[in-house]
Design a binder for these strands. Structure first.
Lengths: 238, 238
DNA sequence: CGCGGCTTTGATGTTCATCAAGTAAAGTGG
DNA sequence: CCACTTTACTTGATGAACATCAAAGCCGCG
């Protein structure tokens, strides 16, 4: 999809948080005044695929909420190679875990699809937290959940080897992101490697083997899952 | 040190949070009433080396604060082998990251030295967070810092191989835990392996090589660092 | 149309896990 | 306190999984 159409489409989409599908997830229990506060200061930003949203080391000054698209969080290692920490999808609170650290970003954020982000100034959020205890508890709860998820994911990935990891990623895109068995991979093979901490070459080898064994079909970036169950078995045990 | 002496020694030690060295770190800005609340409900628990403090899957119902000793956070993988997520030392808020998840422990906690833990009921903490905005912000800040630390650590470990990881752990004990170059390893070789995700055998091989090369001296559990600088180089680049 | 980045496959080497086997140390029960 | 059992520690040999190096085809884009 061309970017200008994407821009047009979202322009008439959501006017304020009241109609935002994801509002419930975090801002559900604000009172009218607080809610107006958030709505008044919040801004929306559009990013094209490949655009950097936040650079490593940039100052953390706003809360980011992913409304549409897909972003990756990444770090650069000492040899200059990137490593992807996680992929975030609509509804995710992209930087919640680091937002209150009073430090700079320890990772970068980049759009891997055309992306719409909602920004809320940090000071406003802090003010509401200070005055609305329920909201504070809700934020704490989400932070807990996010950090547990990250730890759990890393733990499970660590128990798998190449094919298990690739299978897991394919199912992640099919099940959690696109909700269908045929989809366009939004990231390159190299990025998948960076996500599962394997080399590009070996990632591709796993793809090729899956194709050869009839588990998936590949047409450039288009992946189509042929044998869901077998792939799931590999993802779990392999 | 025998456990009974440890118990006697701490008995007359700290009567309430006012004289607790670590109080400042989190409870520094409570008012008198809130402070009394915490102090009234808090309990202290002693654990011997090897005792399990919290089991995987146990309910999270109190805030844990490590006053003396050393604990490990661990998970059991699908083959029944343990993997250590982190070592916590006095002053650490052991379970802060998961405390607000409204779920059960996804990891276990075990004393690796005789340990004194301070417990504060979760409900009390939640109540104070709801009514004291500054405190809420302080908790959020600490959660941010802890999660960044974990992510950073894992990222850096991932870039190292066997010898680099072992060297890092040795320096961690020398610099951050015991603050001296000769110390008794509180954990077994197997546990070090579990901490750096390597096998026991290879962990030992690294130890042996360090000894052979004059970097460290080993007397059973007593480690003595002979060439700090060279070890540091290995830890950083190896 | 040609350049650079992405993709793919093959060959080779390194790092680490696994298996095996033995010694040392530390609990355990009579 | 000693025999017995278990757990920790150690070294060597072998193989598996993965990284690295090399080379070539592909694709999009200025």
């Amino acid at each position: 999809m061309l970017f200008k159409y994407f821009r047009m489409r979202i322009k008439n989409d959501i006017k304020n948080c009241k109609t935002c599908v994801y509002r419930q997830m975090l801002f559900g229990n604000l009172n009218d005044f607080e809610y107006k506060l958030v709505n008044d200061v919040r801004t929306e930003s559009l990013y094209k695929r490949g655009e950097v949203i936040k650079r490593e080391n940039e100052k953390v000054d706003s809360f980011l909420y992913l409304r549409k698209g897909l972003v990756k969080l990444y770090k650069t290692d000492k040899w200059g190679k990137e490593q992807i920490l996680s992929i975030n999808k609509p509804g995710d609170f992209v930087n919640l875990l680091t937002i209150f650290s009073k430090a700079n970003y320890k990772y970068g954020i980049e759009a891997v699809e055309d992306t719409l982000v909602c920004n809320v100034e940090l000071e406003v959020l802090e003010h509401i937290i200070s005055t609305n205890g329920d909201f504070a508890m809700r934020v704490l709860n989400r932070m807990s959940n996010i950090s547990e998820e990250i730890i759990e994911n890393r733990f499970e990935q660590g128990q798998k080897q190449l094919k298990g990891r690739v299978a897991t990623i394919l199912l992640y895109f099919a099940d959690d992101i696109y909700h269908k068995n045929t989809f366009n991979l939004p990231i390159t093979r190299r990025e998948i490697g960076e996500l599962i901490t394997m080399t590009t070459e070996n990632t591709i080898r796993a793809f090729s083997e899956f194709k050869r064994d009839g588990l998936i079909n590949i047409q450039n970036r288009t992946i189509s899952i042929q044998d869901y169950e077998r792939l799931k078995t590999i993802a779990k045990s392999g």
